[in-house]
Write a protein that binds this DNA or RNA. Structure first.
Lengths: 353, 353
DNA sequence: ATGTTTTGCTTAAACGTTTAAGCAATCGGT
DNA sequence: ACCGATTGCTTAAACGTTTAAGCAAAACAT
């Protein structure tokens, strides 16, 4: 008995993949009818639908995605390009996009540019080749030229940018209000009693970092603090560069009493230097990072940082794509969705007593 | 002049995607000849090949991946399932797999189970539906039942497991030598002068954690240390559980002088507790983690950990798939590739002076 | 009873590619 | 000059699905 059962199972397994035609043959109806029954077409009787679904189950029918994609002219795949996957921000964005897109029958093909312009171009080629229905991307640090993105637009498939985007491309963009974030940070530091606030910033040519710089400058003005050139330093925002730029700040004859770093990794480097030099945080120098990477809560002292709402960004990006997918008129026009960032206050900048 | 140029570009852009037929029409040859020319078939003259490739370029021809996949019965997509994407280990594995697979014309579809059995099943369905040519996976913590993996095998597509795998499945497996890793750790701690070595372990039902436990027990024996039940604690290995289990160890009347934690996140939780209670690390209690997550080097004190060679695992997994892909005889048989792990010694366990 | 609408299907073409089979022209050898 | 092999292509079918068009039967209205 048991033996026969396992034999039957084997027979089913060995049998090649069953198709719509197989179902049609069993029921003596046309493949077209089967297709319609499976899609609950109104012109198919309930009786037939039930029968078709039952047979489909019995034959362990799995629709061939390639065939339907080819016929319908869409693959139900969305390409995602991120600079890195190993940052919490990007992996969280992807997870949330996936959640929204999966529900609507879309799958994600993920690629990463590794912050390289060349790899970003390759990624785009790969995704277009795979016939994705849309691309959601965040630009590499290196990227200045935008010709490769125009390739996407000219194919007529929707392009959505997040976090690192460019206004010039005239496409949907989702991100946080970097300008305002700087204001929130400066305000917080001023409230803690800081008077000489330094800014280790990202590269000016990237819009988001530029916005943070502008925000920093304007916020200083607003609080009647002078802008001192020696306190504003551009950085690649790696850990190592964070260390370097912090050392540079410490070598000033007139040291800052607070440092706002435009990225958490660089902030961590700065923190290490401060600890090594036995500088009291936040009493001697307060520290604020950007991005709310998980480790900011884990190091000692924990680092105040800006939550970029990766969940919302991921979900919004996905939803924006879905809107395009519904109305396949690709009216690409600049459509920014800007979220308010949130300051997570931790020990590195908590009120001096 | 400039105007006419931009108009021409527009014309090309607007034109619908060009196909093999379009090229055929231009050259007055058959689509079949074009296809063969593009694939450098030996039965096509060099002259025709050159002409075809030139026209293809002019028309900005991009092969339709769906059509060729349908016809050839393979999608050139590889599905990857990981428990999480936000750990350095998994994201590094994926990046390295991608590198190897891209070179051979394969793309990756990435999914994550979020450590959930249910999501793992869904992921498999999704990937099978997308007609992937193979699946590379690491199991969720929750997974005990393996029926869903048999589904992959019964479809006849190659399955390769890494890190979290099960021998029972009889498929390729790539991982590190967990048993030996425990030996290396215990030996190291003994050399630092530790005599009461505790182990906060993962769940016994997961083979890799079971191997670490067996290694821990055998290594103690080898160094003539008694195995004390109260020093061996199973854990989910989250930060929170690491804290909890560390507190449990501290509440013992006879505290350990070293703690080997089977995961870095839990080790971090343990570290926090030790610091909060002003216990000197490593002098009072030495600490060792597992996985070499980047933050182990960043916290204070830095945490000694085991490097799992994510790069090699990723590359090996990819190469193993490629071997299967070449010889499409899917002779699935248990084929383990076990790498030696490497102990990265840091401050949390460095020689007591 | 007759015409109209609705229901429930079928037929056939299409998506863009690959490939087995086949055929004419050319070439090499005798 | 003739045979066989080689070259360089063509024809046509196939992959599995979807969908526009169409047709017969049933249901309804008058």
């Amino acid at each position: 008995m048991l033996k026969r059962l396992s034999k039957d199972i084997k027979k089913i397994n060995i049998k090649r993949k069953s198709t719509i035609k197989d179902i049609a043959n069993v029921l003596n109806i046309s493949p077209a009818a089967v297709s319609k029954a499976l899609h609950d077409d109104s012109r198919i009787s309930e009786k037939t639908k039930k029968a078709v679904k039952q047979v489909a189950k019995n034959l362990n029918y799995q629709p061939n995605h390639l065939a339907s994609a080819l016929r319908k002219g869409k693959s139900n795949l969305v390409g995602v390009i991120v600079p890195r996957t190993n940052s919490h921000f990007f992996s969280s964005v992807i997870q949330n996009m996936e959640e929204v897109l999966n529900k609507k029958g879309y799958n994600i093909i993920m690629t990463h540019s590794n912050e390289s312009y060349k790899k970003e171009c390759d990624s785009i080629d790969t995704l277009l080749f795979t016939q994705v229905d849309g691309i959601i991307a965040s630009m590499a640090n290196e990227t200045i030229d935008l010709e490769h993105y125009n390739k996407i637009k000219s194919k007529g498939i929707p392009l959505i940018l997040f976090d690192r985007g460019e206004n010039d491309l005239n496409v949907d963009y989702i991100g946080i209000d970097d300008y305002k974030s700087s204001h929130i940070i400066v305000k917080h530091l001023v409230e803690q009693g800081c008077k000489r606030i330094a800014h280790i910033s990202g590269y000016k040519h990237t819009r988001i970092f530029n916005n943070r710089i502008r925000g920093y400058i304007d916020a200083l003005k607003q609080h009647d603090l002078p802008l001192e050139e020696e306190l504003l330093i551009e950085s690649s925002l790696t850990i190592e560069d964070g260390r370097k730029k912090m050392l540079q700040l410490l070598s000033l004859k007139n040291r800052p009493d607070a440092v706002y770093v435009a990225g958490d990794y660089a902030a961590l480097g700065a923190l290490q230097v401060l600890k090594e030099q036995n500088i009291k945080i936040p009493n001697d120098i307060a520290l604020v990072g950007f991005g709310n990477e998980p480790f900011t809560a884990l190091v000692t002292p924990s680092i105040t940082s800006i939550n970029q709402h990766s969940e919302q960004i991921g979900k919004l990006a996905a939803k924006t794509f879905l809107e395009h997918a519904k109305t396949d008129t690709v009216k690409q026009t600049l459509n920014k969705k800007i979220l308010d960032a949130e300051l997570i206050i931790r020990d590195s900048s908590r009120l001096k007593s």
